[in-house]
Design a binder for these strands. Structure first.
Length: 305
RNA sequence: GGUGCCAUAGCUCAGUUGGUAGAGCAACGGACUGAAAAUCCGUGUGUCCCUAGUUCGAUUCUUGGUGGCACCA
């Protein structure tokens, strides 16, 4: 099989607010590609304003996948995304030479580009039970069990991070094997080329865009959107910047201005975490979002098959 | 105009019986494989308002300013 017949996945990544959506449309139009969203929150229905999902007009310009396809109550994960996206890509590469993937969910991107280890999905009841134990007795008894069942991971893991500790124990209890034994950390081969384009702005510029975007979201009716999903507030899908802060306001535990400031602040912090993650990825070729021509040049001259 | 109180980190404030200072929040750095917009870890960034004294040494005490607040006119 020649390189040319494989097809190319152009991954457009970068921190929130940098300008991925608009640029992804231009590039997809230029390449005649569909867009595959890689955003752990835009996947959900009814979160369009707060997640800055593509607008109806934008969705009409280019065919999008993985926007608003999940119910707020649906369970989802990076590994499920890997599965779903790979399946879809196999289909799309039948009649497209390239597909544009865009989004900022770091682990989802890596799940596609590098793969994620095969770890069994945790049984719902077991998760509930451990959650209950954690609520009642704290992390100590869970840590202790993990120490006995998987000393290797116990020594490796951040013991203060309850999510990691609990998940490792879940897997141990469910499979009867150590969690470590599932962690191979190997890079998976993909049947397509991968080109990573990173979008970057000066911090000051990015922060200003984020602040303005939050104000715009409020004008567009974010508060109303949050109110509509308020009764689902305990779900993971709504443990999301832009919603959790407004839920506090709706609970009467802070005033609206404070909630809005918190949204801005938490979005800025999130953007930094994204940059910290992306910084380590040496496969990324970085551009400013205004460098549309350069990016397309880069893709056409030798990088696209 | 008079009297009193205050001035310390980006903000709100502790504190130093005289040996150049510390909390919360913010800010910043990092980790990250099935909940990841999640979760967790780390870091003090400072003309202690200015000036002149006393002192081996002043952010701390004294003098005089400047600014703010309160009360009295």
């Amino acid at each position: 099989m020649t390189k040319a017949s494989k097809g190319s996945l152009v991954i457009l990544l970068g921190p929130t607010g940098v300008g991925k959506t608009e640029l992804s449309l231009k590039i997809a139009e230029k390449l005649g590609s569909p867009i595959l969203s890689c955003d752990s929150r835009q996947l959900y229905k009814n979160l369009t304003i707060g997640t800055a999902a593509p607008t109806r007009e934008q969705l009409e310009r280019v065919k999008h996948y993985f926007i608003g396809t999940l119910e707020l109550t649906d369970y989802y994960s990076a590994s499920k995304y890997e599965e779903d996206a790979l399946q879809l890509l196999a289909l799309l590469f039948h009649d497209h030479q390239s597909v544009v993937m865009t989004g900022g969910s770091m682990m989802y991107i890596d799940a596609i580009a590098k793969g994620i280890d095969e770890i069994p999905t945790v049984d719902e009841q077991l998760r509930k039970d451990l959650q209950e134990l954690y609520q009642k007795e704290g992390l100590d008894p869970i840590r202790e069990q993990l120490r006995l069942l998987d000393p290797e991971f116990y020594n490796f893991v951040d013991l203060k991070n309850h999510k990691r500790v609990i998940h490792a124990l879940e897997v141990c209890l469910m499979t009867g094997k150590t969690y470590s034994s599932f962690r191979t950390n190997s890079k998976k081969e993909r049947p397509f080329n991968i080109i990573k384009i990173g979008l970057k702005r000066d911090r000051e510029e990015l922060y200003e865009r984020i602040n303005l975007r939050v104000d715009q979201m409020m004008q567009d009716g974010l508060l109303e959107e949050a109110r509509k999903v308020y009764h689902f507030r305990h779900l993971n899908s709504l443990n999301t910047v832009g919603y959790k802060e407004l839920f506090n306001y709706l609970d009467d535990s802070c005033d609206l201005d404070f909630a809005i400031e918190k949204i801005k602040q938490n979005t800025r912090i999130y953007s930094r975490k994204q940059m910290a993650w992306f910084k380590r990825d040496e496969e990324i070729k970085w551009f400013h979002p205004d460098q549309e021509e350069e990016i397309i040049d880069y893709l056409l001259k030798g990088h696209l098959s």
